[in-house]
Amino acid sequence: MLDIKDLHSGYGELRVLKGIDIEVGENEIVALIGPNGAGKSTVIKSVFNISDVTSGNITFKGQDITSLKTHEIIKLGISYLNQGKINFTNLTVRENLTIGADQIFDPGTVQDGLEKVYTKFPDLKTKENELAYTLSGGQQQMLALGRSLMQRPSLLLMDEPSLGLSPKLQQELFATIASLRDEGISMLIVEQNAKKAIELADRTYLLEDGNVVLEGGKEILENEAIRNVYLGGRY
């Protein structure tokens, strides 16, 4: 459903991605791993047209979206859970949840979505009128994920969603991600824990210095290079 072909992208003069091909199929979970600065976030930013794409093509469900504006891309059913400042800290929990869906849906649909998210994450319901910065790390992550889900995406792009979470919360997050697939959402996930990523995903791409250097299914856990470099140390 998402098809990235020979993508060159970066920021101004800085070239980050040097011609990569990545594909995400219908109902598939695809992981993107690689060292810091490899360009993982830039892949997602390119899809969302918030980095400077210099050449190549990105198509979604057969439609070329390479030069669509961000708010147009969202309407097609792609949502992006970013890395870093993931919530509007000075807005309430409820405002944080509805703000994404509000841009594309009528109030009734937004309200429906809100109730579904509150059922999925009851913690958010009890904090609905608090400002987002008062939430714990795990709740922040739920809030951001909840906001994305309210946009009813068929493709969810997630940039290191497990970062900063305790092992227990990470476990819960991965379970949630698996359940999202059952709801028919395809996912492209950037993950710093290579082992977890490969186990979770149907296919994994290894990105190094702006190039895809390895691609495969769960069998790449056995790959020499992966074992030595990523599964031994930090990764």
């Binding site: 918030i50 400042k85 703000i99 841009q103």
Partner: peptide, 20 residues
Amino acid sequence: GRNMRAVSNNSELASIVGIN
């Protein structure tokens, strides 16, 4: 008004959620 507060709080995230 809420969209304006959102842009002021975190303009990158505001674009990501679809605010023009």
